[in-house]
Design a protein around this nucleic acid. Structure first.
Length: 803
RNA sequence: GCUUCCAUGGCGGAAUUGGUAGACGCGGCAGACUCAAAAUCUGCUUCUAGCGAUAGAGUUCCGGUUCAAGUCCGGAUGGGAGCACCA
């Protein structure tokens, strides 16, 4: 085994010394940018899951370089964030030191696996040279009115002691620690991401993302089309509601407004049951989102007495309720309730004994409401809806919307679930937000020339219960002067979320050492965009969405060449433990890549991870199967003994060789990594059956396997006396030689295989038919029967239909 | 509940996109080499019947389209993922 490690290290040193994988910006070769998500350098080290996607993209990168592309395959580290900070608190080290050490370990591990990264472009998001530009870009957001400070109820994680974005608190649970999130009113920096909803939706058309990735984003953006209707209050005043079902508007029997919204505050002076209403508002505020979902099997709420609202279409006066299922920050914070055709409204009406008016003739609703997708699909007609009676729901939907617009009662609008991006974190280990508060001048941006705003070196970085960042305690750092008036002022003490640095790192890789700009337009135009980006499915609604938003903004202010800078996005499946469970320390099913490299070699691990299954699906670890891959590489080594002195290729292997080149090329570019390996196993088996093979035969196999197993193939290639594979060209196949001259095909009778015949490429349909009829077993099955027709699919199959 | 993906031997998975289902690998069984073990090599390995040629069944289940369905269409069941009182 030591022999293998020696060989692997030898070639790793060779690549490093010869700068084999450094990409030259501006080279005349066709540029191609392959990206894998840069890792968070945790203390646990590299995971076998990293190895899977890095190897897959590495094999693509290595093949394409040999094909003459100028491949950019960079690597860096996303090192801001809570884990490093927590580890630092525990061990009383500065997070900077923790991160530096972890990065060293990760780098060493990656090098031991032979990934062909361009290490000259490496950086960490925590490098001041890098986060200077993250801060600079934040200032651009601010200067273009895209960043603002607002006091809103936000997701607060009591364990991590920080605010979380909606994306990080999906389901009311902290994404990092799993704690239940609380709602707290806090003043936060926000980025106006919601205003990009439509652009982010439309932009997907200019990408080649995998369907499941697109769908994930579409889902999260959550567009719904409907009508906003203005509702007058009896005795003056009004509010608006948003509905996606305007066709049911005649069925309104009450309205429900959000207890956490602004509307109820405005109405308060006119409310007759103030105490009751205020009590309900207080109770709601105490509940987290999760509680709201779980505790309300029944629908809680109180009537807002003294307030009656008017349905504009028929003048009907109905009561107004408070209900915590209505959210203050979605739509208008108020809804019309049509209990006959909405399950939630129905339950609320039952709970509070409210009137139910059926407006769509869809049969009995005494058990439950019949909802939109049912009545629309069935073409049911309207009733109790004045002049719209008798129209189908589909038709009425448009006609009623038209009417609302014509009469000025409302307008068609789109609503989105996606909110603005909560951009403040009350933690130490993040990019400081480069804003200064002055009593006289308010919030002021730092001067760009003063960036980077460095994190101070201090002894304490524990988060605080008060909801203030630990930076707030460092008065030397906090106290500064106002960039506008020069008077005394205080720095913002919150830091950015760790999604900030990763939102544009792929741009920096195009021009990583630029001191004047985050990346030059020339460099970005040369590399054009990320051609192929691999990452986890869990980043679809977060990192990838943030990154697209960030890039679209930069595009709109003229700083990047495309609105979408990422073309293809794919995601790999997880590697599970051998027990089919997610790998975790507590389950004891974690495989450490270092152990595998030491025992079997990096090439074996790489081949195994490519061979283990469908790249896009989860796959369980299996050490026996890994050993099988070691055996395969041993066979490759043994094949060297079969090499003879003859020139050129062996004639009888020609078709298989051409076919294999074609398949390896196609599969490598279509994520069929497992079948790349199996086709090479087939080729190796064919070689093994020969008495001897030529040097060229052998070198072909080594070259095709090289992208996946780069070390051992280089070594064997060198032993044959050839120049290194990584400096050679990829073999070309001849399409004509991928087809056998002679082939066995099946003959079916009535769709059942009854025999096989041998055909040649020259055989015409008539000849094939005759051969099929002469087949002994086929004759038995057609004897005495009437032949209805004979279907001949050239090169594939013959089917004889008989009666 | 909504959205979405998936279902093939003992296991991981192939199937040129409608054309011989089970490639390749793992595991298992039998054999060779060996004093023995490891390694390696050879053969078999979807199920049923048969010594065998062969025949029948078979890609979760039911139905349809087609000369031909793992693949396309409709329905059911089971499982994964995402969102979840979003009006």
């Amino acid at each position: 085994m030591n022999e293998i490690l020696k060989i692997e290290q030898k070639w790793q040193k060779y690549w490093e010394k010869h700068k084999t994988f450094e990409a030259k910006t501006g080279s005349k070769k066709t540029p191609y940018y392959i990206l894998v998500e840069f890792p968070y350098p945790s203390g646990a080290g590299l995971h076998v899951g990293h190895v899977r996607s890095y190897t897959a993209q590495d094999s693509l990168a290595r093949m394409m370089r040999m094909q003459g592309y100028n491949v950019l395959y960079p690597m860096g580290f996303d090192a801001f964030g809570a884990p490093a900070e927590e580890y630092a608190i525990k061990t009383h080290q500065h997070p900077k030191i923790v991160v530096e050490n972890n990065i060293k370990v990760f780098g060493k591990q990656m090098k031991s696996l032979g990934f062909s990264f361009d290490w000259s472009r490496q950086f960490s998001t925590t490098d001041p040279d890098y986060y200077k530009w993250t801060q600079w870009q934040f200032l651009q957001f601010y200067k273009h009115g895209m960043a603002y400070k607002d006091t809103i109820p936000v997701n607060w994680c009591p364990n991590c002691k920080t605010v979380l974005s909606n994306e990080d608190a999906a389901g009311g649970v902290c994404e990092r620690c799993g704690s239940q999130v609380e709602q707290r009113e806090k003043s936060q920096w926000m980025l106006k991401m919601a205003s990009y909803s439509e652009d982010l939706l439309n932009g997907l058309e200019d990408t080649n993302f995998a369907d499941r990735v697109k769908l994930g984003q579409i889902n999260w953006i959550g567009k719904s089309t409907g009508v906003e209707v203005d509702i007058d209050i009896v005795g003056g005043g009004n509010f608006s509601i948003f509905t996606t079902c305007p066709e049911t508007i005649y069925g309104i029997t009450f309205f429900v407004i959000a207890p956490d919204g602004k509307l109820i505050k405005e109405l308060m002076p006119r409310v007759e049951n103030k105490e009751e209403v205020e009590e309900y508002i207080k109770e709601t505020a105490k509940k987290s989102n999760m509680d709201r979902t779980e505790l309300n099997k029944g629908k809680s709420g109180v009537e807002v007495k003294g307030i009656k609202a008017i349905n504009p279409v028929n003048g009907k006066e109905v009561p107004v309720f408070l209900g915590d299922f209505v959210l203050g920050d979605y739509g208008t914070g108020a809804v019309m309730a049509v209990p006959s055709h909405d399950q939630r409204d129905y339950e609320y009406a039952k709970e509070h004994n409210l009137e139910i008016i059926q407006v769509i003739d869809c049969g009995d609703i005494s058990e439950h409401a019949i909802e939109k997708h049912d009545y629309m699909g069935h073409g049911y007609k309207l009733i109790n809806s004045e002049e719209f009676d008798g129209m189908t729901a589909d038709e009425a939907r448009e006609k009623i919307s038209d009417m609302l617009e014509e009469k000025g009662y409302g307008r068609r609008v789109n609503n989105y679930k996606m909110r603005d991006w909560i951009f403040s974190r009350q933690r130490f280990w993040g990019e400081p937000i480069p804003m200064i508060y002055c009593e006289k001048c308010g919030w002021q941006p730092m001067k760009e020339e003063d960036l980077p705003l460095l994190l101070p070196d201090v002894a304490e970085y524990e988060p605080t219960d008060t909801g203030e960042s630990p930076l707030a305690k460092i008065t030397d750092w906090v106290n500064t002067t106002c960039p506008h008036c020069g008077g005394p002022a205080r720095r913002e003490t919150d830091t950015m979320p760790n999604w900030a640095g990763s939102s544009w790192y792929f741009l920096r890789f195009m021009d990583p050492h630029n001191e004047k700009e985050f990346a030059s337009m020339d460099a970005m135009k040369y590399w054009n965009r990320v051609d192929w980006y691999n990452g986890g499915m869990e980043h679809t609604a977060r990192h990838l969405l943030y990154a697209r938003f960030w890039v679209q903004f930069l595009y709109n202010i003229g700083l990047v060449p495309h609105k979408e800078m990422i073309w293809t996005r794919v995601s790999h499946g997880m590697i599970l433990g051998s027990d089919n469970q997610k790998m975790s320390k507590s389950k004891g099913n974690v495989i450490n890549p270092d152990d595998i490299v030491n025992e079997y070699g990096a090439d074996t691990l790489r081949v195994y991870e490519m061979f283990m299954g469908d790249y896009q699906m989860d796959a369980p670890w299996n050490t026996d199967s890994l050993r099988g891959c070691r055996r395969f590489l041993d066979k490759i080594i043994r094949l060297k003994d079969k090499v003879n002195e003859k020139e050129g290729f062996t004639q009888s292997l020609e078709v298989l060789q051409n076919k294999t080149i074609k398949k390896v090329e196609y599969d490598t570019t279509h994520m069929g990594y497992n079948t790349v390996i199996s086709s090479l196993m087939i080729l190796a088996n064919a070689y093994d059956e020969m008495d001897s093979i030529t040097k060229e035969d052998y070198r072909l196999l080594l070259t095709l396997l090289n992208p996946t197993a780069p070390h051992i193939t280089e070594e064997l290639n060198e032993q044959l006396g050839f120049k290194p594979i990584c400096e050679s060209e990829w073999p070309k196949y001849d399409e004509e030689k991928t087809v056998e001259n002679v082939k066995d095909i099946a003959v079916q009778v009535n769709g059942k295989v009854r025999g096989t015949i041998q055909i040649t490429v020259d055989d015409n349909e008539q000849v094939i038919k005759e051969k099929a009829m002469e087949c002994e077993n086929v004759m038995k099955h057609i004897e005495g029967k009437e032949i209805v027709k004979v279907i001949v699919i050239k090169g594939k199959i013959v089917n004889i239909v008989v009666k």
